[in-house]
């Protein structure tokens, strides 16, 4: 159970009606249950379109017999609401997803839509608000909250419906570093606590580096995928399509250019630092 694929995407393409080039061009990939997947690529590479296909906001082109499966459910017109019960999305703009008049109302929105009785809502809502550390703002109005706080409320609204998958659709890109770090640490905790699968679409290389699996998109195509190790060591490929590389990979590259020999297995910043410190103490 622990290692099955919670998302299976096969031969999926998508074109926007007014455009001739497909936004998504024949993509297939799987996401393991309980894993963290990052999708990176420059603006307009099709990252966000994939998410809208996964929860049925968009419907894939018919050619190539596409199939999308979420938590064992094949996505069709009839199952779309079942799929949406399993996928919670935190969108980019903190203001444009805050539906409720207050924090509590907003967190309850998803529950109201699913017809959860009032007696249960009054139990679930404060719990979800507490999980994101917003209890003292329960009755606050969105106008009095920072962007980061609004995104925390968005996460609470998702936790309330107990989904299997949480998607961050550039959810931290409009926040300051403090807000961004808070959101990422909350999502990390929640992932462990509720055994969630996380998909994060991001430009932030540190955020992408939190993943088990990285997908790289360019012009609607999935150009490479794999562990952070395999993807981020392809420094020149990433640079060619205008993407960042984790800082420690940049240092490795520069040291090696200057003929300093590094072993192949330095796969994280920590390992690089340990190695460099050892190297220095030997001298």
């Amino acid at each position: 159970m622990a290692t099955d694929n919670i998302i299976k995407i096969k031969n999926v393409s998508f074109s926007y009606p007014e455009s001739d080039a497909p936004a998504i061009d024949n993509i297939s990939f799987n996401v393991k249950r309980g894993s963290w997947t990052s999708i990176i690529g420059h603006n307009g590479s099709g990252k966000s379109t994939i998410i809208r296909l996964i929860n049925g906001l968009l419907v894939p082109d018919e050619n190539g017999s596409p199939s999308i499966e979420v938590d064992g459910i094949k996505l069709t017109d009839d199952t779309v609401w079942e799929v949406r019960n399993r996928v919670g999305i935190v969108f980019q703009n903190p203001d444009n997803q805050f539906v409720g008049a207050t924090v509590a109302d907003d967190v309850a929105f998803g529950l109201e839509n699913r017809g959860i009785p009032h007696s249960e809502m009054v139990k679930i809502v404060p719990e979800a608000i507490k999980a994101v550390g917003m209890s003292e703002y329960t009755n606050a109005e969105p106008a009095n909250l920072s962007g980061g706080q609004k995104q925390r409320v968005a996460i609470a609204g998702i936790l309330a419906i107990k989904p299997k998958i949480i998607v961050l659709d550039e959810a931290t890109s409009m926040l300051d570093p403090e807000g961004r770090n808070q959101i990422l640490s909350i999502v990390k905790d929640m992932k462990e606590k509720y055994d969630l699968t996380v998909i994060s679409i991001t430009h932030d290389i540190d955020e992408a580096n939190m993943a088990d699996q990285v997908l790289v998109m360019n012009d609607g195509k999935l150009i490479t995928q794999g562990s952070t190790k395999t993807v981020f060591s392809q420094v020149s490929l990433l640079k060619n399509i205008g993407l960042d590389v984790p800082f420690f990979e940049q240092i490795k590259e520069k040291l090696q250019q200057d003929a300093i020999k590094l072993p192949d297995n330095l796969d994280s910043e920590k390992e690089l630092i340990n190695y460099l410190c050892q190297l220095n103490s030997k001298m």
């Binding site: 203001d95 539906v99 109302d105 929105f109 109201e112 839509n113």
Partner: peptide, 26 residues
């Protein structure tokens, strides 16, 4: 744009009209 974003978010959060909707604020 806000309206479009909001409707996307609402649909993702399971809003499908009044049918079977309960109310939190009583």
């Amino acid at each position: 744009e806000t309206a479009i974003d909001l409707s996307t978010a609402m649909e993702s959060r399971g809003y499908r009209g009044d049918k079977g909707r309960t109310k939190f604020r009583v």
